[in-house]
Design a protein around this nucleic acid. Structure first.
Length: 231
DNA sequence: GACCAGGCACATC
DNA sequence: GATGTGCATGGT
């Protein structure tokens, strides 16, 4: 039985309010420049942010957190610098190809890139090697300020545990759930996703039974009967 | 020492 | 289209 639109709107709004009260504003993305956010989006793929941020610091220290210089640095040197983020050979390759594209297509200019409308730009990003839906949407939302909702492992886990989606829901289905039932506004999408991650990090792992979950009292939650695995 | 973390591509059926 | 596997580090 699919929840009705008014129910979803109400519930998604209540969840947001609860999370905001519990965790406060998250000030995402934790990066100093839009370009740093793009690099971070690739480095954090399937990796704890802590490890990705170590790699970012090393790039900064080497004065390489700049698209023109990153475009010129040898891939082997880049791989060594980003070692802490894991999958460093793959990520060095992905970063190089992304930066090549960014330089060639936009001259390394964020404002130039931002001029492209959301849909075609998303398609463009998805066509790059190593840029999947989450990385593309993270760049669009957190680096460029485009109104698109980022879905990640935490988002799926939390929504499924609270019976708002099935565990098998696709990326696009989950994204559409938020985008159809919330105001299309990038600051809201920004904060909402960051808050879901905050919840996922702080509670879902340490308290998988959800006894302390701030969302517990919301709507028709049926936590007792949701599937056990949270991974 | 096992398990996990803000994915993605590619092979195979 | 679904399912399985490689990629790899650092923290708990």
């Amino acid at each position: 039985m699919k929840p009705s639109a008014p129910y979803l709107r109400r519930t998604l709004t209540r969840i947001y309010e609860k999370l905001l009260v519990r965790f406060g504003r998250q000030h995402w993305w934790p990066g100093e420049t839009p370009f740093e956010v793009m690099v971070g989006a690739i480095l954090t793929q399937n990796t704890a942010w802590r490890n990705a941020s170590i790699a970012i610091e090393r790039l900064k220290k080497a004065d390489l957190l700049n698209s023109a210089r990153l475009d010129r640095v040898p891939k082997s040197r880049l791989a060594k610098l980003i070692r802490s983020s894991g999958y460093f050979n793959q990520k060095a390759k992905r970063l190089k190809s992304f930066v090549r594209y960014f330089q060639k297509r936009y001259g390394g200019s964020v404002p130039q890139m931002r001029r492209i409308p959301l849909d075609p730009l998303r398609k463009e990003l998805l066509s790059l090697p190593g840029i999947g839906p989450e990385t593309a949407d993270s760049i669009l939302l957190y680096s460029l300020g485009k109104p698109i909702f980022v879905v990640d492992a935490y988002t799926r886990r939390i929504l499924a545990r609270h019976s708002l989606i099935s565990w098998e829901a696709s990326y696009e289905e989950i994204q559409a759930l938020f985008q159809r039932n919330l105001l299309t506004w990038s600051p809201l999408f920004n904060e909402y996703h960051a808050l879901l991650v905050a919840l996922g990090k702080e509670l879902c792992r340490t308290h998988p039974e959800c006894h302390l979950c701030p969302l517990r009292s919301i709507g028709k939650l049926r936590l007792e009967t949701s599937p056990a695995p949270i991974a």
